[in-house]
Design a protein around this nucleic acid. Structure first.
Lengths: 217, 217
DNA sequence: GTCTATAGTCGGATAGAC
DNA sequence: GTCTATCCGACTATAGAC
């Protein structure tokens, strides 16, 4: 902790400030102050404010890839040979149980703010974020859902369903204030994450049941 | 359109600018310019930047209450006498079919940005937003879910499930960029909204089936 | 690589004319 | 109610010392 390079200190401070205030709203002075380095070192390391912004996006993408990596790796292994619906179902549960922890964890809060803002008003940085971490995850989820449905679900339908499922997680990140107000929780700690995980697993079961049995779509 | 009072023009411009840039990031000069009035009229009408911000939150809350009103009214009517699970199920579908349109519509985009930002970093304005529109909706959803489950679902569990269900909608608003990238859509128009509505209705059916039959929770 | 100093722009608030 | 003029602070960028 004591010997973090200036470049990295700047990136961490940048993710925090840009996430809260946006590209325009954040100030390089404040970022530099938090990183305990003069403002002009931003020019030196990243060429300027926008360079720092893009570098922050790339840094987030690689950090997320690291965190989602273990779960994705496991799913890749389970799907090495074409999986049965039962195996796919297992894999789906695995991914979600893991993602709940990742998405709700305080360490990813700053990442989430940055990504959220970028989605609201996408710039060049969004491509970096999407290609870096989200695309494979969503594609894998969609493929699992299709398998579970015995391929009755169309490709587009399975992508849509993957998105709705991710939404069940997302709400606990992006609407945290409403979540706290509704549940009466004071924070989202380990006990609360378990409750969320159970509720979502329950929904997953229900949706998989219907998919596997063959509902009307 | 031609004769909108200055106060209202300022509110609309404020919602747009604050939603995109936040309280600090937005500039009263730019807001006033868009409202085609001098900056000092903000001082006159709202006392300053923060007064304008709070007024914008109140205005959003009442606009949302207007839009969600019809659906909520219908649900209230259906629940006048304690509803059967089948009636509750109908009501649930009704609310969601309506909310999909509301949440995804371009007119509410500015509202969504404002609320999103406020959730990420709640200020006094959040209370206004939550009490004004969200609370009753979430409470009604939770009550419907409980009824559907024959009261097997606990109060807290039903609130959590209401939140996960709202998440399925939310994702199409807050992660629009990812939605477009994943589906290949170029916009979320009427045809796309119908697909979303079908996918979510399908999930609802699945979850209600499980709830009504009595899953493990 | 790191820091200081400075130039030029734009921000919010306010006083006071009409 | 509406507008102009002005104050002062904060911002980004950059030149140049070490």
């Amino acid at each position: 902790m004591a010997d973090v390079p200036t470049r990295l200190r700047l990136l961490n401070a940048a993710i925090d400030h840009f996430g809260r205030l946006g590209l325009h709203g954040a100030s390089t002075r404040a970022i530099a102050r938090e990183a305990d380095t003069p403002m002009s070192s931003i020019t030196y390391h990243f060429g300027g404010k926008e360079g720092l912004y893009l570098a922050a996006a790339d840094h987030i993408a690689s950090e997320i890839a690291n965190r989602a990596g273990p779960a994705l790796e496991q799913v890749r292994a389970m799907c090495a040979e074409p999986p049965t619906p039962a195996v796919a179902r297992n894999a789906l549960h695995l991914v979600f149980a893991h993602m709940v922890g990742v998405i709700v964890s305080p360490e990813t809060a700053a990442f989430a703010r940055f990504i959220l803002r970028e989605q609201a008003d996408p710039t060049e940085a969004f491509t970096h974020l999407y290609s870096g971490a989200m695309r494979e995850l969503l594609a894998r989820l969609a493929a699992l859902l299709r398998t579970i449905s015995h391929d009755r679900l169309g490709e587009q339908d399975s992508r849509l369903k993957a998105l709705t499922l991710m939404g069940q997680l997302l709400v606990f990140r992006v609407a945290r204030a409403a979540v706290l107000a509704t549940t009466g929780w004071r924070e989202v700690g380990a006990a609360e994450v378990d409750e969320i995980r159970r509720s979502i697993a329950d929904n997953l079961e229900a949706i998989c049941d219907r998919l596997e049995a063959g509902g009307q779509r």
